[in-house]
Design a protein around this nucleic acid. Structure first.
Lengths: 224, 224
DNA sequence: AGGTTTTTATTCGAAATGGTACAAAAATCA
DNA sequence: TGATTTTTGTACCATTTCGAATAAAAACCT
């Protein structure tokens, strides 16, 4: 019987989480799966799914195509892995920014700055948010990606909702304020930063936009 | 000497602007260049530059590949044409929305609604803004596209600047308001709508976001 | 050392892709 | 009608692309 040969199960962490230095059996890998995914992610990030050929990915990771396939499965699977990993990283830093306390103004600025420095990373200029720059393109074609991206945005929105809800309860917003509406505006603004970063705006411009947004939401900073 | 055979000059309007029914010489075209570009635009819009194959474009326009090439030049040229045409159309409706008068609140709502209905058009669900959804991907690779997209965003920003500047002068904003900062926030919010539309949010959700934004900028609507 | 296991490197192949050559088709002009 | 002009349709070509088959390489185990 002819096997249909589905994309192999990617098995990223050979075991555990920390350095699994437990003597692996065969020939040792010539690459670090973690950095390889990171490099593949960068390639997709810059060039998009369709724009990134397997040769591009191969060059970026230093792995040849059979190794790529063996390690991560086909291109679609690799993209999903890249997306998941991006989300994990992004979630981690965002949660930190949300939770670090301080005034609403401080928290907002922290969150925007965290997003921005991610969006401006990379050596081809601003890349924006992976979800937006690469994810939304592939979402049209891959339902898994579509769902993951939607979840990611929703998660972000929830973060802002909680932030504004707490701020409201702590009296940081005038009584009667529609804090849910404020949270929505604050949340989508992150996506706007992604677009503008990708469009080549400078950090200065983007930070001015952040300041303007924060001032609009929290009221302009009063000096002394 | 071997000719390098550059992409042919696309000659869209055979002459004039209105129906150029001036008896063309050879076999008549089997397509309308204007709707063909529109269909090609839709394909790029949904699938991006790299994701749209010439076969896709051929199917969408009903033209076979040689006709496509003869009429518009190579794929890159066709994309630039699609981008230019999108900008022209978009500019036209946006200028209308900006100029139609009324209060700042009304003008803002009109502009956002105009953008939104464009972003939600199409049969694959929300497509967002062509500049953002397709343009920014190709901008990495094609400097002409990069410049055009940057110009488009800048033009949008200018529209908001003028709107807010006028509103300020007419006393629609509290004295001392940093109307330039407000204009920047209002402008990038259009891009946020594009992202969220593409991510599959419903018209209701997006309109709620618009309302929240307008209320934040103009102050909540006072009933009677 | 010999066997086992896993990864790497070379190579291949089928399909898709962007682009083109060329003749047939469909109109006008003389 | 026949010549001319322009567009269309078929077929073709070179390259790229994704994926896989296969054997060599590099480690461990006994």
């Amino acid at each position: 019987m002819v096997q249909k040969s589905n994309p192999p199960e990617p098995r990223l962490p050979p075991e555990g989480e920390a350095p699994p230095e437990a003597k692996r059996r065969g020939r040792p890998r010539g690459y670090d799966p973690d950095v390889a995914v990171r490099q593949a992610t960068a390639t997709f990030w810059d060039q998009g799914y369709a724009g990134a050929s397997l040769d591009d990915l191969s060059a970026a990771t230093g792995m040849n195509r059979p190794s790529l396939y063996g390690a991560f499965g086909d291109k679609q699977t690799l993209f999903r892995i890249a997306l998941d990993r991006y989300m994990d990283e992004s979630r981690a830093t965002m949660i930190q920014a949300f939770r670090a306390g301080g005034t609403l103004r401080e928290a907002l600025a922290r969150v925007y700055q965290a997003a921005l420095s991610r969006y401006l990373s990379g050596d081809v200029g601003g890349r924006g948010c992976f979800l937006v720059s690469a994810g939304l393109g592939q979402a049209v074609v891959d339902p898994v990606v579509r769902q993951t991206v939607a979840d990611g945005l929703h998660e972000l929105d929830r973060g802002f909702e909680r932030l504004f809800s707490r701020a409201y309860e702590h009296g940081e917003l005038p009584p009667g304020t529609d804090h849910a509406a404020l949270a929505r505006v604050a949340g989508v603004m992150v996506n706007a930063l992604s677009v503008r970063a990708r469009a080549g705006e400078t950090r200065q411009q983007l930070e001015a936009t952040i300041t303007a947004t924060v001032d609009l939401i929290c009221g302009p900073r009063v000096s002394e």
